[in-house]
């Protein structure tokens, strides 16, 4: 039971970005994907989530055996997938509380209403962990939020929706060190044997706080190296220059 990406190929505007990507993240593990700009990191997250700008030309993605590529975007979410956005969207006029509530309501069978009291209790508990002021419930989703507030809000949604598999797309970008610690706390609180994580990042810094079990290096649409947490440190010191050298057998 895990997220399995098999020989995934995807294009944007007819140009190939993912070129036969293979990845397996078992439940209970945290895998990091690192790589230089343009290597396809964000594309991978968006293709898994189902963004329509990307055309999947081959391969498969399964979550606990379910074929994700065959599902609508919202079905993937309800099937247990969560994507924390690199650039969370602002939704003017929709309060944060109503937004998360609608997302939870969408998971209930028709005719069943979310228990409002229990909902707010749970929401406030999670906001406390993320050190978010209560006023964020009434504010429009992400509107006028600072970079750090937006990322905390992503993690809040993740905690509320209780997914089985989480992808964090460059969650560390735009975060100062204090926000990074709080966001990481939220993520670490959710680590469990029943849940997998794919942490996409450009920098090793995030991985000091969210310790990965496995680190992959993505380059030109493929995983080119896989190793333990020490691989992230190695990349931090020597950079991605090794990618330019010809691969020798």
């Amino acid at each position: 039971m895990s997220l399995i990406v098999n020989n995934l190929q995807a294009n944007i505007d007819d140009s190939p970005i993912l070129k036969g990507l293979n990845l397996e993240v078992p439940k209970g593990e945290v895998h990091a994907i690192m790589g230089p700009n343009g290597s396809g990191k964000s594309t991978l997250s968006k293709v898994i989530a189902g963004h329509e700008d990307y055309e999947v030309t081959g391969g498969s993605v399964t979550l606990d055996g379910q074929d994700l590529l065959d599902m609508e975007i919202d079905e993937r979410s309800r099937a247990g997938l969560f994507l924390a956005f690199q650039y969370p969207m602002e939704v003017p006029g929709v309060s944060n509380a109503n937004f998360i509530r609608a997302a939870l309501q969408a998971r209930l069978p028709k005719g069943e209403e979310l228990d409002a009291v229990a909902y707010y209790k749970s929401l406030y508990e999670k906001m406390d962990i993320l050190e978010m002021d209560r006023k964020f419930t009434a504010r429009a989703v992400n509107e006028g939020f600072s970079g750090g507030e937006k990322k905390r809000n992503e993690i809040l949604q993740m905690m509320m929706l209780d997914p089985t598999f989480c992808i964090l797309d460059e969650t560390d970008s735009g975060l100062d060190i204090d926000a990074l610690k709080i966001v990481s706390q939220g993520v670490n609180a959710m680590r469990s044997p029943e849940r997998g994580f794919l942490v996409i990042t450009h920098y090793q810094r995030l991985l000091d706080y969210i310790k990965p079990d496995v680190v992959h290096v993505l380059s030109d649409g493929q995983i080119v190296r896989t190793g333990g947490p020490e691989l992230a440190h190695e990349l931090e010191e020597s950079g991605y220059d090794f990618l330019k050298e010809p691969v020798t057998a």
Binding site: M89, V94, Q157
Partner: peptide, 20 residues
Amino acid sequence: FYLQARGIQADAARQMIAEG
């Protein structure tokens, strides 16, 4: 896409955005 990625169906997402 953002709303759908939270599990809200496309039509409902569109309505929610328009209402907002």
